[in-house]
């Protein structure tokens, strides 16, 4: 009780919630842009190379990659505060989700799980990219050919997390009913996943043809 009284009446909960929102939006924005950039391979490998060289030449990559890593870690810590840490609580949530069998509750449970997964998967991805510098179509194609199964998982997990994440933020803050927001979020997610899959196929073909 003493500590509750002493720590009460500040705005930390608000700020945490805002950081969760801002970092989430930023990451979704990044991820979707990233996927669009990756999809340039569908137009031509030259297009892809031009874009990555442009980002490299102007040092955008050197700035953006560490920044996104920091934001992602921040997002993990802040949004992760929602995840029950005690085993008893985890059991309750699992039991609750099973009993209720409610769509949005299940999607949230998987949101927490995918969040954890992304932390590991994305770290590996960044490590792979950075150690195989620079980014160009051939490098990526080699990587994709070797690790396509890894990227397939990362694509679905990442897009799932981003799609439902942004939907939930709109639900929590928004002025719109959630049903239409849900449709839009799902639509965008599907489009991105299709683009991602197509890009993967293109990379694998490119790698195979080399």
């Amino acid at each position: 009780m003493l500590q509750r009284v002493l720590t009460k009446s500040n705005k930390s909960d608000l700020y945490l919630d805002l950081i969760e929102l801002a970092s989430g939006l930023l990451l979704v924005g990044f991820l979707w842009t990233h996927m669009l950039f990756v999809s340039t391979i569908l137009i031509s490998p030259e297009m892809f190379n031009t874009l990555s060289e442009f980002l490299d030449t102007y040092y955008l990559s050197y700035f953006a990659i560490p920044f996104i890593v920091v934001v992602a870690l921040l997002h993990f810590v802040i949004a992760g505060r929602r995840i029950p840490t005690r085993i008893q609580e985890q059991r309750i949530v699992w039991q609750h989700a099973k009993m209720l069998n409610h769509f949005d509750t299940w999607t949230w449970v998987f949101q927490a799980i995918t969040g954890m997964a992304i932390l590991v998967l994305a770290a590996i991805h960044v490590w792979l990219v950075v150690t195989g510098w620079p980014i160009n179509a051939m490098n990526s194609a080699d990587r994709m050919e070797a690790f396509w199964w890894f990227y397939l998982v990362l694509l679905f997990v990442g897009e799932y997390h981003a799609g439902f994440g942004i939907y939930r933020q709109f639900v929590k803050w928004g002025m719109f009913p959630r049903k239409p927001i849900g449709y839009v979020a799902k639509l965008i997610t599907v489009v991105i996943i299709v683009l991602g899959l197509a890009a993967m196929v293109a990379f694998v073909r490119l790698g195979g043809g080399a």
């Binding site: 929602r82 409610h102 949005d104 509750t105 949230w108 639900v171 929590k172 002025m175 959630r178």
Partner: peptide, 24 residues
């Protein structure tokens, strides 16, 4: 700020109150 946006409240309210809107 404790609400995680799962909206089971909104889906289960027998009075069909606009809970999502009120919470937001």
């Amino acid at each position: 700020f404790g609400c995680m946006g799962l909206m089971a409240c909104d889906d289960n309210c027998p009075m069909e109150l606009p809970l999502q809107m009120q919470l937001a």
